Every structure is written in C-alpha cells, then in structure tokens.
Simulated assay, not measured.
Amino acid sequence: MKQIGVGMIGCGGIALQNHLPGLALCPEAKLVALCDTNAEVLQKAVQQTGISAAFTNYLDMLNREEVNAVIIATPNFTHAPIALAAINAGKHVLCEKPIAMNFAESKAMLDAAEKAGVRHMTAFTYRFVPAMRYMAHMVKSGFIGEPYHFRSCRLQDWGTRAVGWRQIAKLAGTGELGDMLSHRIDYAHLLVGPMTRLVADMRRYHDVRDGQVSDLEDWVAIMAEFQRNHATGVLESSKVATGRGESGKSQDYCEVNGTEGTLVFQLERPLELQISKKGETSLHTVPVPTEFLKWPGSKRDPHAGDPIMTFRYDQDMEFIQAIVQQRPCVPSFLEGAQAQAVMDATVVSTNEKRWVNIEQVR
C-alpha cells in the first residue's frame, strides 16, 4: 500500500515532541513536508527531520500532490482557515485543540470535512492516557451506575512567566479555558455525555507576563448540568496555583461519582485508577489492564519510555489508522465542536454573570 504523505503545519514544540514521535511509529505514514511562518523554527524542524520540502505558506504545501494529510499545530486563530483550505484541497486533517476561535468556526470545519469525505480529528491528547481509556470503559460498562457528579481540577504554577501567543486574545481566543480546560471539557463529554447548561467565571491575575501584555484569563471554573441523569459537573483550571509545578507532574484530577461507584483519574499516575463501590468507605488503587495500555493497533511498546509522555504518540496512530481504514477518527471535529460550544457558553456566562444554555452540535 502507498504510504500516506503527511504535512506538518506549525513546527513548534507540540509538533516536535508529540507528533513526530507518533508518526515515526506509523509504518503506513511518511512525513513529506513542513510548514511554519517562522523561518528559524522551520529550519530547526528541517534539521531535526531531514525533510527538504519546507514552506512558509501553507497554501504552497497544500498544492503538493504527495501531501495526503496535514497536522495543524499553529496558533488558534489560524486553525479554521488552514483546516478549511486543507479540506478544500482534499487533505485529511488532524488539528490541535481548540480547533477554532468560536463555535461557528468549529461547526463550519466539521460540516466541510464531512461534506468532503476527508478524515478529521481533534487533538484531545489526554483521551489516550491509559488510565483515562480504562476509566471511560468502566463508566460505559456500568461500574458507577448512573452518574451523579463529574469533577476535574487542573492546577499548574506558571507564575508570571510568558506563555507566548496563548496570552493574546486575538491569537488564542481564550486563555486557560482553551489551553487546558478544553481537555477537561472533553473528559466530561467522554465520561458523562453532553452538558446542557452552565454558569462560569474567568479571572486574569497577571496583566503582564515576562514584560509582555496578557489580555486573557489564567483561571477558569465551570459549574454545569449534564443531559444524562441531570448529573452535575464542576471543572476548574489554573495557571497560578502557586507551588503546583507544571506539565504532567502537576495536578490533573478527574472524578466521577455514580449510583453504584466512584472512579478517580490522576495524570501523574497514568497506569492506574482509584475506585470504590457502593457500600465501601474508601478508594483503592487498581492497575490499568494490559489491553488499555496503548491504543488498539498502536506499534508503541507500552513499557518503554516515560508513560506521562508516550501515550501522546497514539493519537497520530489513530489518525493514520482512520485514514487507512476509511472510518471516522476518534475524537473527530465533532468532539472539537462540542467542546467549543461549552467554551463559548463559558465566555457568555462570565461576561453576563448568568446561567447559559449550551448549543448542541447535533
């Protein structure tokens, strides 16, 4: 079978740390082109990959016949125009989250991709954590019964350090909401299902980061109601949780309580869950079964490398497998649009200080 030619649009840290190692594990795929508007970043990627087909304009890349699919890892404001151009060119698309600046853009991306018949995927990376995969399985199998509560808490300490384009509204749309809480919104959808309404608040504690203006929030919290069983949800995310650290070693906590049991996930322990059943009075720890340690079909050795990093590579395997098998990606632009609808409602609720109904994608 002919290899799938992949073009990387945006060659910064996420592309080099997450997507390149993931593609390297996919024998059906081959990285064939690179694109970045920053010549220095592009040159670094060229040196690291040995790929000579390098572009500063994504339209030039999309004209290349050998490019069958693209991975978009650029600032948020460029996601929709790049994705729509790629779809129009008949390319399959994996896009970093949040996939758009607002719900209308995300819905346009979803509709265009489905009309064109191309594969489309949202990079909700943390769905691929073994413990989260097992947690979703346990919920689906009925372990917790009907859900009562969902809660997530993502705490990091960035202090007044700059976060680049992510602190600029015209480039990112939202701050902590889109950067970190979007993943936890997806947790909620994966485990409990659609939210129907919410009330939220966002705060910015630092107007300047490393001498650079910041006009986006660095803390956000949501209280929500779900369609299923009228379950409740509480989601919080912060970049100013002093002393909490950063990345995979900082707190990323998710819990679901139901009529029959409770499940607890923590990113720093990606290969285990804490569980409790009705009648018990405390949680106990269980290992993730072997079949959930990697994505089905993944060539990755689940026992090699840092488990807080290596699960990320499976999302690229899923993207390529979906193209080969001509089936929908998981998660797709549908899940990206569903998360964007919640994000839009969060912004409205914060600005208008009221409960807001969440627009449903379908």
Rank of each mutant, 00 (worst) to 15 (best):
M138K: 13
H206P: 04
I71C: 09
I144E: 05
L293S: 05
S276A: 15
A116D: 09
V256H: 05
Q156E: 15
N38T: 05
F143P: 04
A86C: 11
Q360W: 10
A33P: 07
C254T: 14
A73G: 06
S332W: 11
V220A: 04
R354W: 01
L181C: 05
L181A: 05
Q3I: 01
R184W: 11
T122C: 13
A136C: 09
Q167E: 04
V330Y: 14
Q17P: 00
K170V: 12
V213P: 01
T74L: 06
Q340S: 12
D36S: 13
F55D: 06
N68D: 15
T174F: 02
D252E: 04
I87R: 07
Q266W: 00
I185K: 00
A24Q: 15
H206G: 02
P147T: 06
L190I: 03
V208F: 06
A89T: 07
R327I: 12
R166D: 03
S332P: 05
G279F: 07
A89H: 13
A39C: 08
G178W: 00
L181D: 01
V6A: 09
R300L: 11
G90H: 09
I51Q: 09
V6R: 08
A104G: 00
T232Q: 11
T56V: 12
L273D: 07
N257R: 14
R197P: 03
V93W: 05
E236V: 14
K91W: 09
V286Q: 10
V288Q: 07
R166L: 15
E260I: 01
V348K: 10
R327N: 06
I82T: 03
L23R: 10
I4L: 13
D111T: 12
L216I: 09
R244H: 13
I185T: 02
C95V: 13
Y253L: 15
A241K: 08
A45I: 05
A345M: 03
T56S: 15
D60L: 10
Q17V: 08
R151P: 00
N68K: 13
A345Q: 04
D186I: 01
A241C: 13
A89D: 08
A188T: 03
L267N: 10
A339C: 15
P21K: 08
N88H: 14
C26R: 05
S276E: 13
G90T: 11
R327V: 13
A337C: 09
I185D: 01
V342S: 00
E225R: 06
T232F: 05
D60C: 07
E291I: 03
G164W: 06
H206T: 03
P289K: 07
H230G: 06
H284R: 15
S106K: 08
E66Q: 15
Q212I: 14
C95G: 06
H230M: 11
T56R: 14
E260F: 04
A341Q: 08
P296V: 03
P287K: 13
K299M: 10
G10V: 04
V208W: 10
E272S: 15
K294C: 08
V199E: 02
E352D: 10
D210F: 09
G261E: 07
S152Y: 02
R166F: 11
N18P: 00
F265R: 04
A188C: 03
Y253I: 07
F124V: 04
K30A: 15
Q266P: 00
F292G: 01
R203A: 11
A231N: 06
C254I: 12
A339R: 01
V264Q: 13
G211H: 14
G248P: 00
A80H: 06
F77E: 04
T281E: 12
D314N: 02
W158N: 10
A39T: 14
